[in-house]
């Protein structure tokens, strides 16, 4: 089986400071991988490097493209990479306003990716947008409202719909439940889990919330100071952490 994403020896420096280094892993279709670590551990740098937002100083990020199989996205041309990020890839930002157009209606936000890949039939675009609003539990009569009038949880769900409408195969998520109320988080997690299963999505989720990765991620990578200190099955890493930092991380979570 070909991995969907093959990351080989990725390093990203900010001057002499390490962003992240020595990162390698394979992600297979349908797998969800969590990346945890404290602020400044390099997890967001890694995510942005994998998603093509930052250029790594070393290494390869190979993606199993539909047309040509595994291709290194670091060295592919920018138009190709941007096309990938509009079609087979998706990126869910922590702050919905970074991932949404706040002055465009909910329907327009969802429809943008369709129009970006050539959809030119208003009626069909609108029908698809409406269907997706339903799938992320946003009432369809809100289709013409701007996201500014939405709650935080709704904005985040809208961002997910906007990203998934073109049927991507790989989703990058940066703290998707950060800044949301606990009850809203649960709803979002449930939604994400169902979408991941229904669409057979692969996902890489960066978070500092261990409960989120336990529920969403099949595999887990723990980062500290730009290095991966431990990785494995999510419940194995959380139940039997090997590295001192992971042990500290796991034992620091308050039990409720």
């Amino acid at each position: 089986m070909t991995p969907l994403l093959q990351v080989e020896d990725i390093a990203k420096y900010y001057g002499t400071r390490i962003g992240c280094t020595d990162v390698s892993f394979d992600l297979y279709p349908g797998e969800v991988m969590g990346i945890v670590g404290e602020s400044g551990s390099g997890k967001s740098t890694l995510l942005n490097t994998l998603a093509g937002h930052l250029t790594p100083d070393r290494g390869a990020v190979r993606f199993d493209t539909r047309a040509d199989g595994l291709r290194d996205t670091v060295t592919m041309s920018e138009p190709e990479r941007r096309m990938l990020s509009r079609t087979d890839w998706a990126f869910v930002h922590q702050h919905a306003r970074d991932g949404l157009r706040m002055n465009v209606s909910a329907g327009g936000n969802v429809g943008e990716r369709l129009m970006a890949v050539g959809a030119r039939h208003y009626g069909k675009i609108r029908a698809t947008a409406s269907d997706w609003l339903g799938r992320v539990e946003i009432n369809e009569d809100r289709i013409d409202d701007r996201p500014a009038s939405f709650s935080g949880g709704m904005q985040q769900r809208l961002q997910i719909a906007r990203n998934l409408v073109t049927g991507p195969r790989l989703v990058f998520m940066d703290e998707p439940t950060g800044g949301l109320d606990v009850s809203v988080q649960a709803r979002l997690l449930d939604l994400l889990r169902n979408l991941v299963r229904e669409m057979g999505l692969s996902a890489i989720i960066v978070t500092h919330d261990l409960a989120v990765v336990r529920l969403l991620a099949d595999r887990l990578m723990v980062m500290k100071d730009g290095h991966v200190v431990e990785s494995g099955l999510t419940d194995q890493v959380l139940d039997d952490p090997q590295h001192g930092y992971t042990q500290l991380l796991v034992s620091s979570v308050l039990q409720v």
């Binding site: 209606s105 327009g108 013409d144």
Partner: peptide, 18 residues
């Protein structure tokens, strides 16, 4: 540069929606 003009149609979409 990259002929990414989907956004232009978003504007027209918004027109029709409103």
């Amino acid at each position: 540069e990259l002929e990414e003009y989907g956004l232009m149609h978003v504007k027209l979409y918004e027109d029709i929606a409103q």
